[in-house]
Simulated scan of single mutants.
Amino acid sequence: MAQTTQPTGSLPSGVGICTTAPDILYIPELIFGGLVWILVASTLVVPSNPQGYVMFVSVFCFVMTFLWMVLFGCGAHKSRVGWAATDMALHALAVIFYLSASVSLAKTTIDFQNDDTNFKNYQIDIAAVVFSYVATLLYFIHFFLSVIRWKTF
């Protein structure tokens, strides 16, 4: 029988995900995504549609990133081909989601700039916007490095 070699040599598993180039970004992505989730959840939801979308994006990306990190940590990717492309696609989706959510949250925050009655919520929304853009940047860097890793296969 002929053996087939699977191109999983550059995909880390176990503790290796905390030391390799794109995968080390899982932890900051979880931290900043969790901060966006917490900050948006703690504000007064007056325009529920944009902030509801931001909540969906932050929770979805947080859960998917956590599950993806656990799968990589357990070494589940060693059994099949295509994990590098799936990693790239997951982070591309996260970039698109977070960028649209960040713009929406920033627009909503700007609309409530002159509302003196909810100044505390305005400040929390500003922090959520900043952390949302940081999460977007982290996911974009991870996507870019995943593209480079995918091309080496």
Rank of each mutant, 00 (worst) to 15 (best):
A89C: 07
L25G: 05
V130G: 02
M55Q: 14
L44H: 14
F144S: 13
V15A: 10
L105D: 07
T19S: 15
P22M: 07
W37P: 00
E29G: 13
L11P: 04
D116K: 05
Q3E: 10
Q113P: 00
M64R: 13
L11I: 15
I141T: 12
F97A: 01
Y98N: 09
I38S: 09
A127P: 04
A84N: 11
W150F: 15
T152S: 15
V95K: 03
A92I: 00
L138Y: 01
V70Y: 06
L44I: 03
T4M: 13
A94V: 02
A135H: 10
V57D: 02
A2E: 11
S102I: 03
V130C: 06
T8R: 10
Y53F: 15
L105P: 07
I96N: 02
V70L: 14
T43G: 04
V70G: 10
V57M: 05
A92N: 00
Y133P: 01
S100K: 01
I141P: 03
M69Y: 07
G33F: 03
V54F: 07
I96Y: 09
W68G: 12
Q123H: 09
A135T: 14
T4H: 12
S146G: 04
V15R: 01
S58P: 10
V15G: 01
V147N: 01
L145P: 03
P28W: 05
I110E: 09
A41G: 15
F56Q: 02
C74E: 04
R80H: 06
I110P: 00
A85G: 14
